[in-house]
């Protein structure tokens, strides 16, 4: 494959939506109200829809008759490049919303950049995704306020979630080798550029939600290089169960 960097760049974006979608998929039927189950499922469906678009494109780059599922299902853990944030578990609803919110703000900035990509396929996927993610951010932002500025118990839980998840945020702005190559070619987005905008926007909502913005000195990263938290193996065990147990079959 000539454009290995482009392929890896696409995985770096699409693995995020895939793994976050998996996490949301675990929740369906277990949420606090039917209305929130339905809303979170809509978000998961948006994310999987985007994932498919990216992987269909990635499969084309691989050629050799590969399809979206080969890309989605048939890699080893070290070859998934999602950020650590999205693989964190649904510890409680505060974590679900906190993870969503911290990702959504980043995700929208990314897509806004990507819609100007010189790669017209990526630009088109981003363009479609922007509307979806704009809504995701509004939804999770509203919930941050409800949970942060709700009851004493909910504030404590929301604060706990944000404190725990915060250390995964810095990774969002780190550049991989594929990122750098694609930025150079005018295809990729330089995510390190909007770090400041991200933290400012997140802080504004957290302030409104009466949540204290954490002041971490230390952050954790690795997902972008395929070095994941221990949760990832279980996510993949679920995701790949059928494909691994019954190889080479059509479903």
């Amino acid at each position: 494959m000539n454009n290995n960097n482009l392929y890896n760049y696409i995985l770096g974006i699409a693995d995020n939506t895939l793994i976050l979608g998996q996490r949301l998929g675990e929740l369906c039927g277990h949420g606090p109200a039917l209305e929130t189950d339905i809303a979170l499922t809509n978000i998961a469906l948006d994310l999987f829809g985007q994932t498919r678009n990216y992987f269909q494109y990635a499969a084309l780059l691989v050629g050799d008759g590969k399809a979206e599922d080969d890309v989605a299902y048939m890699r080893t853990e070290r070859n998934y490049f999602n950020v650590l944030l999205v693989e964190q578990p649904n510890t409680h609803f505060g974590y679900v919303m906190g993870r969503q919110f911290l990702f959504d703000v980043y995700h929208l900035l990314l897509l806004e950049g990507l819609q100007n990509s010189s790669d017209i396929t990526l630009a088109a996927i981003a363009d479609k995704g922007i509307k979806e993610v704009t809504y995701h951010k509004r939804f999770s932002g509203d919930w941050m306020k409800r949970l942060g500025d709700g009851t004493a118990e909910s504030r404590q839980k929301m604060q706990e979630a944000i404190d725990d998840l915060w250390r995964y945020t810095d990774e969002l702005f780190q550049l991989t080798k594929a990122d750098k190559a694609m930025i150079y070619e005018g295809i990729g987005v330089d995510v390190s550029n909007f770090k400041e905008a991200y933290y400012q926007e997140v802080s504004e909502i957290l302030n409104e939600a009466t949540i204290t913005v954490p002041e971490n000195k230390y952050f954790t990263s690795g997902g972008k290089k395929g070095i994941h938290t221990e949760h990832m193996g279980y996510i993949l065990a679920d995701l790949q169960y059928m494909q691994r147990t019954y190889p080479n079959m059509k479903w």
Binding site: E35, I38, R138
Partner: peptide, 20 residues
């Protein structure tokens, strides 16, 4: 119909429940 705590949530829930 649906359940919601306020108008903002009611609109969001309505969007997710009735216009999907």
């Amino acid at each position: 119909s649906l359940h919601a705590t306020d108008a903002v949530m009611a609109l969001e829930n309505a969007r997710d429940v009735y216009t999907r």
